[in-house]
Amino acid sequence: MSDATPAPPAGYALVTGASSGIGEQIAREYARRGVPLVLTARRADRLQALATELRAQVPVELVAADLADPAAPEALVAELARRGVKIRILVNNAGYGIPGRYRSSDWTDHAAFLRVMVTSVCELTWRLLPSIRTAGHGRILNVASFAALMPAADGQTLYAPAKAFLLKFSEALALENNDKGVHVTALCPGFTYSEFHDVTGTRARMRVSPSMWLQAADVARAGIDGTERGDVLVVPGWRYRVLHAIVKLLPHRLALGMMARNSRKVRPLD
């Protein structure tokens, strides 16, 4: 009897938003596990550097795409078909935040945000689901946020609703595709060390206990492990799991009031 580690099932993992943060760490973790990769993001130079590094472990395909472009999901899937790349795992990770209250940003900014955070996720999933269902051991990992599990906050008005949509979307997909052995997971991390708060310009205003910050590599590993187990919801970090349990027990008005008082610790002023 051989003690060799079995090879992973055939098929690529497509990771959106793979150029930094949690997406980059998810790509690194899949490469460590021997899963070939398709990496996509807007920043082609950073993708190329990561692809060059990871090709020492697994085959890596690179497709630069801006998911704020309504044509991007269809074009991305068409390019994969042209290359003959079969997707077994889809990681919908691309995302960002728009700081400030709702009317402080133009509608064009909000519309682009929704295309990246919601519409492109739905379209990529719809277009790739047949391949994922037929590949065997299919997986869909949607990177949501702990914000999806909490009352809404003041500022970044569309962020929590978009992430809550990903959670419900994941639950429905999990039920619909369980018959084919497809595992669908919503990963809901809390505050994570990445470029997120630098991009939104909120880093200097963050007044969050150091104990509440997560490492992106730990979040990535927790999400992939949860997807392999078939967990529909993954909340990394025991402190966040305890907080989630407490918030569920609070009256909604009280929980919303607590969020209103704490929003100013992590949100920029208009």
Rank of each mutant, 00 (worst) to 15 (best):
G97K: 07
P99N: 07
R55L: 10
A71L: 13
P99R: 09
Y96F: 15
V77G: 05
P70K: 00
Q57T: 14
A81C: 04
I87E: 02
I98K: 06
A71E: 14
A68K: 03
N93H: 05
I89L: 12
G84K: 00
V58N: 09
L62D: 09
P59H: 04
R55H: 14
A78K: 08
V91A: 13
L67A: 03
A56V: 10
Y96M: 09
R82Q: 13
A56E: 15
A72Y: 05
R83M: 06
R83G: 00
I89Q: 15
E74R: 11
P59W: 07
E74V: 08
L80Y: 08
A75T: 13
P59A: 09
A81K: 12
A65N: 07
Y96C: 11
Q57N: 12
A81Q: 13
A64F: 01
L67V: 04
I98E: 12
V85D: 01
P70S: 00
L62S: 08
R55E: 15
N93R: 04
A78C: 07
R88T: 04
N93C: 02
A75W: 04
L67T: 00
K86C: 10
I89Y: 03
A94S: 11
R82D: 09
E61Q: 13
V85L: 05
P73E: 00
E79Y: 11
G95Y: 09
G84S: 02
K86E: 13
P99Y: 12
E61R: 11
L62P: 15
D69H: 00
V58A: 06
A78P: 07
Q57W: 09
G95A: 01
L76D: 00
D66H: 03
V60P: 15
I87Y: 02
Y96W: 12
A94I: 00
L90W: 02
A71D: 14
I98F: 11
D69T: 05
R83A: 05
A75M: 04
V60N: 11
E79I: 10
R88N: 07
L90K: 07
V91Q: 13
V85E: 01
A65D: 08
P70F: 00
P99I: 11
R88W: 05
P73M: 03
P73L: 02
N92W: 05
E79S: 15
A81P: 01
Y96K: 05
Y96P: 10
V91F: 07
I98S: 09
Y96H: 13
V85T: 08
V77W: 04
D69K: 00
R55P: 15
V77F: 01
L62T: 10
K86M: 09
A64Y: 03
A81G: 08
E79T: 15
Y96Q: 05
V58Q: 09
G97M: 10
V91S: 13
Q57C: 11
I87L: 02
L76N: 01
D66K: 06
E79K: 15
L76Q: 04
G84Q: 00
R55Q: 15
P59Y: 03
A71Q: 14
P59S: 07
A94E: 03
Q57H: 14
